[in-house]
Design a binder for these strands. Structure first.
Lengths: 227, 227
DNA sequence: CGTCGACTTGAGTTAACTCAAATCATGTGG
DNA sequence: CCACATGATTTGAGTTAACTCAAGTCGACG
C-alpha cells in the first residue's frame, strides 16, 4: 500500500483532500519495526508524533519495581505520542510494538504547519484527545473503585463489544498483557479466570474465551455479583 | 467584577480580543452555587460546558459502594465538563462545588460557533486537553503502580510545589478529600500521616503540614524509602 | 456548653500480592 | 516429525497492605 492510502486510514486526517494528503504523505517517515521494539520512552523529548500504519503498539508505564501498567493498545490508523506536542515536550509514557509493525512519523513543525493550514485537523485532534480522556476516566474508575474480577469482567465485555456478536472472544493479547491492562499480575488473572470458569460465566481455552452467561458477567462487572 | 473581566481569567479564552470577549460574555450564563452543590452528574446529557469563576469544584466518580475517587479539583478560570462536547454527549464524571462558588456556563452551539470563528480557541482547547491527559497518566500510574504512602508523599510534594518556597503546606481540602484524591480512605490517610510524623518527614497539625525532611519525602514518593 | 461532623485509633479481615514450583505451549534444530 | 529449550501460564502456600467496622477523641460553631 502506498503512503497516500495509508494516510487515509488515520482518523485524524479525515477531511483532508487527496491533494493535501499527498503533500502530507511526502513528509511522513515510515519505519518498519520488529516485535517488542521500543518506539519511544517516557521522559524522552518529543520531536514529532506517531501513528500506527500496521501492527499494534502498547503505551505503558513501569513502576520502579518493574510492574507494568498498559494505558493503551493502538492499532491501524491510531495516532500516539501526540500529547507531548501540546503540553510539556516529553513523552508521559513509553511506547513499544506488540508485533511486527509499521509506524508513521511526522515532525513537529511539519505537523504544526499542517494544523495551521487545516483547522479541521485541530478539531479532529480535539476529538481524539477527548475520547482518550474519557477512556482514562474509565480506567481510573476501574483501578480505584473496582476489584480485579470486576475489571476483568468489564474488559471481557469490552472485547466482546468489539467483535461481531459472537460470544467467542479471541484474545489477541497474552495473559500478561491482559494483567497489565487491568492493573494486576498474571497469577491473579489466572485465578480469576479459573473462578469465572467454575462459576460458569465463561469457558476459556488457551486464547479463546466463550461467554456462557452474559448476564452474570455483566453483574460481575457492576459489582452486583461475587465470584 | 463584571463578566468581561471574568472571561479574561479563563485560560481557554486567551488570545481573544476585548471585543470578542465582550460578545462572548454576553452569552455566558453565571450561576451562584452554595457549598456542596451538584453542577452535573455522571451520565447526564451535556448541553454545554462550564468554568470556575470563583470557588472550587471537584470532578469525581463514585463506586457502587459509595467510595469516591476525585479526578480533579478545579479553581478560578479552569473549564470543566468540556470532554462531553467532543466525544459522547454525556458527562463521564460528576461535578460538585467544594465551597460557595460562581460557575460560568456556555451553551454548546454558542461555543461551537465561537470555535469556528476563532481557531485559536481550538488550539487552546487542545492544550487544556493535553495537560489533563498528562495529569491522568500520572494519576493512573499512582493508582496502579504506587502504594498509598508513595501517593500521599507525591501529593504533598505537589501541594508544596504550588506554594511559594515555604515548607509549610496549608491543606485546603479535608482529609476525606485528600483520601479521595489519592485513592484511599480517611483512616488510611490518618495512619500514614501519623507514620510520616514519627519518621520525622513532616510535622502535621490539623490543617497545616510542615515538611521537615524534603529528601526523605522525595525518596518515599519514589518508592526508595519505606515508612 | 453541647452537638455534630471530622478525625483518629484499634482490632480483625481480606483481596491481592510475592515467591517458588510445576505444567503447558511453542518454535527450533536435528 | 521428534526432542528439547524457552517462555507463558497455572497452582500452591504464605505474607501484607489496605480495607471494614466499631469506638473513641477532637474541634468548630451555634
Amino acid at each position: 500500500m502506498d503512503k497516500l492510502n495509508l494516510m487515509k486510514q488515520v482518523e485524524m486526517f479525515q477531511g483532508l483532500s487527496d491533494n493535501d494528503l499527498k503533500s502530507l504523505s511526502a513528509i511522513v517517515a515510515l519505519k518498519n519495526c520488529t516485535r517488542d521494539e521500543t518506539v519511544f520512552e517516557e521522559g524522552e523529548d518529543a520531536r514529532g508524533f506517531y501513528f500506527v500504519v500496521s501492527g499494534r503498539v502498547k503505551i505503558f508505564k513501569l513502576s520502579p519495581g518493574g510492574k507494568e501498567q498498559i494505558l493503551h493498545i493502538f492499532g491501524r490508523g491510531e495516532p500516539f505520542g501526540e500529547v507531548a506536542l501540546f503540553s510539556g515536550r516529553k513523552f508521559p509514557a513509553s511506547a513499544q510494538t506488540l508485533e511486527k509493525s509499521r509506524i508513521g512519523y511526522l515532525q513537529l513543525d511539519a505537523f504544526k504547519k499542517l494544523v495551521s493550514i487545516h483547522p479541521a485537523i485541530a478539531l479532529n485532534m480535539i476529538g481524539v484527545l477527548s475520547k482518550r480522556l474519557r477512556t482514562f476516566t474509565e480506567l481510573i474508575e476501574q483501578l480505584s473503585l473496582r476489584e480485579v474480577p470486576e475489571r476483568l469482567a468489564s474488559y471481557l465485555l469490552y472485547l466482546h463489544s468489539l467483535g461481531r456478536g459472537s460470544s467467542e472472544i479471541k484474545l489477541d493479547v497474552t495473559k500478561q498483557q491482559l494483567a497489565s491492562f487491568v492493573g494486576t499480575i498474571p497469577e491473579t488473572v489466572s485465578r480469576v479466570i479459573k473462578k469465572m470458569n467454575s462459576s460458569r460465566l465463561i469457558v476459556s481455552s488457551s486464547s479463546v474465551i466463550k461467554i456462557t452467561d452474559m448476564d452474570g458477567l455483566k453483574k460481575l462487572a457492576e459489582g452486583k455479583l461475587k465470584l
